[in-house]
Design a protein around this nucleic acid. Structure first.
Lengths: 152, 152
DNA sequence: TATTGTTATACTCTATAACTATA
DNA sequence: TATAGTTATAGAGTATAACAATA
């Protein structure tokens, strides 16, 4: 595979943000699409996956989960119900506020999250394995920049 | 905003593909999610958008579009019908094969595609504008690597 | 007989509105 | 009165199955 680290098209004086935004958006959307397609065979749906990933950080209320996922409360009720039925999360009453519920990830949930993560990562790991070391370094740096960028 | 170009965590001897794959996958999925969220207010749906983008390269049959988009034929019929109703594509019989139809993008379709693209890119352009020049160069290189990576 | 495209139907995921209970 | 969560219902978007037209 080719090395893109030294490719042309970037004058030393600067990269225009609007041009870069188009390039990066196209690359990110295409890659995410491939990642989604190659992730077939998962036990859990994409929505369930990201909720489990949030829960790994600790128990959360349903409202907090809905806000983090940018979905409405009824949708989160549905996702949490599905995860509960499969035994991947547990629910309990909030100690101080009887209206709220707390949701945690179970050991089985941790396990399925790890499985799904490695399945979803396998395709990409094969692809980056054949890149040059320089390209891998570029991608690693870019990953950190993109994390900060999208974290808000 | 901070500069990530020189951050720690990467021994000089190499970057493990499986670790990089997890980092990159997380960054790409999170960024694509933000791009999707920030793209609200579009005239056309995401599916219609990518079909228009494919058609910019030239006319296509419905079957070809369905395969490129990884959807089934009935779904593509629906998308193309919606685009036709809005005047963004035209259809005609295939010259050599009466079973097939050809779909082109119209001038109105080109226009709405450009509008949607700049709307969808505006959020990202603002973010990359405040990065260091080194970070922009890293992202630009990474974009090209990811393009090759996902192109197959 | 195989292939292209359409129609019919069902399923999944999401949203809004109405409801219950707790604060 | 306001908030957390659930239930009821409707609207996208997708899929499979059955069909019509053409190769």
């Amino acid at each position: 595979m080719t090395t893109s680290t030294g490719d042309a098209g970037h004058p030393a004086d600067g990269i225009r943000p609007d041009i870069l935004a188009i390039e990066l958006r196209t690359a990110v959307m295409r890659t995410s699409r491939r990642l989604r397609i190659e992730a077939t065979g998962d036990v859990i749906t994409p929505g369930q996956y990201t909720v489990l990933a949030h829960l790994r950080a600790g128990s959360q209320t349903l409202r907090e989960l809905a806000e983090r996922e940018h979905v409405q409360a009824p949708s989160m009720t549905r996702i949490v119900n599905a995860l509960t039925d499969q035994g991947f999360v547990s629910r309990s009453a909030h100690p101080d506020d009887g209206r709220q519920i707390l949701v945690w990830i179970t050991p089985a949930g941790e396990e399925v999250l790890n499985e799904a993560r490695s399945q979803r990562t396998a395709w990409l790991a094969q692809r980056v394995a054949v890149l040059s070391e320089g390209d891998r370094l570029t991608l690693s740096r870019a990953a950190h920049i993109m994390q900060e960028l999208s974290a808000k």
